[in-house]
């Protein structure tokens, strides 16, 4: 069994490296900025969903409030940049650290909650964050923050027309989130999380440090999501509370993982690769009608996939042969 597991991990790593290499080469063939835009969003949401998956999929703590960390990342970066001239690269790290600390601070009371009480608590805390930013004059309140654009610069991570730097950053973020997940799967934490998810009481009695392992998952997850938020702020070059901390981001982080396969290594990537292009294309083709057809198509797909494939789209690819460690 251990040998199978090790072999699967090696295979996953090779597949990931090949996919990443192929992805890195796509800009050679894809020159259209609209397609590039879709690719960037897909990679970003794949990365975000992968990070969300660490806490909610592996550790089983379903959060629908990750927009809080996304927004904190975006705001920390841009407040530091516009108010104090701190370069976004440092702002990105700062945003990640702030989010991780807040995630751990919230973890103390939150991890006592279970099931729907926990889910609603996460929604509610993100809403509080949204309302506070909406009323915080110094941070721009409803007006938001416009990032001053002075021209292409790696130092300030801003580019006028070319999308390639954003593309490679999103790819790097996605790979990082994937690799962290891959690495954690086989770590002490990874085993603990699986135990916590299966049966927290039994895990505790077996000596698993349930609480600290949840805290670790929350911190890693929040850190990566905040980096994604910083990236998004630089990419869009304008943020306001609604557009970085709204509930829709919490959902958009969860959906790819759920549709692809929650708590799996490849689910978020697969889910994002299908969901994000689909939402963009339905809006392009049907959105201008004003009749809500895009919503009907989008919603129906979510219902059908959830019902038909409860383990996510990934279950279509899984081999009938049992691979021991794969749950």
């Amino acid at each position: 069994m251990d040998k199978d597991f090790a072999a699967r991990r090696r295979r996953d790593l090779i597949i990931a490296a090949v996919l990443a290499a192929i992805a890195a080469l796509t800009p050679l063939f894809v020159k259209d900025v609209v397609v590039q835009n879709i690719l960037i969003l897909t990679l970003m949401y794949a990365g975000l969903s992968q990070s969300w998956n660490i806490l909610s999929g592996y550790c089983g703590q379903i959060s629908l409030g990750h927009a809080l960390y996304f927004g904190l990342g975006a705001y920390t970066t841009e407040l530091l940049f516009t108010k104090f001239g701190v370069l976004p690269w440092f702002g990105m790290l700062a945003g990640g650290v702030v989010s991780a600390l807040i995630a751990m601070g919230l973890g103390y009371p939150f991890f006592r909650l279970r099931g729907h009480y926990f889910v609603i608590a996460t929604i509610v805390i993100a809403e509080i964050g949204l309302l506070l930013f909406h009323n915080w004059e110094w941070a721009g309140a409803a007006m938001g923050i416009t990032i001053p654009i002075r021209g292409d610069s790696w130092l300030k991570f801003q580019f006028l027309r070319t999308k390639l730097p954003y593309f490679y950053f999103a790819l790097a973020l996605c790979c990082l989130a994937w690799f962290v997940t891959w690495w954690l799967e086989n770590s002490k934490w990874g085993f603990w999380w699986r135990a916590v998810k299966d049966n927290p009481d039994a895990a505790e009695s077996l000596g698993v440090d349930v609480f600290n392992s949840k805290m670790g998952a929350a911190a890693v997850s929040a850190f990566l999501v905040a980096v994604g938020g910083s990236f998004y702020a630089q990419f869009v070059s304008y943020i306001d509370p609604e557009s970085v901390m709204g509930f829709q981001f919490s959902l958009l982080m969860a959906l790819p993982a759920v549709l692809g396969g929650i708590g799996t290594l490849w689910g978020p990537v697969l889910g994002a690769a299908i969901l994000i292009p689909l939402t963009e294309l339905t809006r392009f083709k049907l959105g201008g009608s004003g009749r809500g057809v895009d919503l009907i198509v989008y919603g129906t797909l979510i219902v059908l996939i959830s019902l038909a494939l409860p383990r996510g789209l990934l279950s279509l690819f899984s081999r009938p042969k049992k691979t021991g460690a794969a749950r």
Binding site: V258, I296, V297
Partner: peptide, 16 residues
């Protein structure tokens, strides 16, 4: 997510 998808469909249908 089934009921959430249903919510989106219902909103779309109402708009339609």
């Amino acid at each position: 997510f089934t009921t959430f998808g249903l919510a989106i469909v219902m909103r779309g249908l109402a708009q339609f």
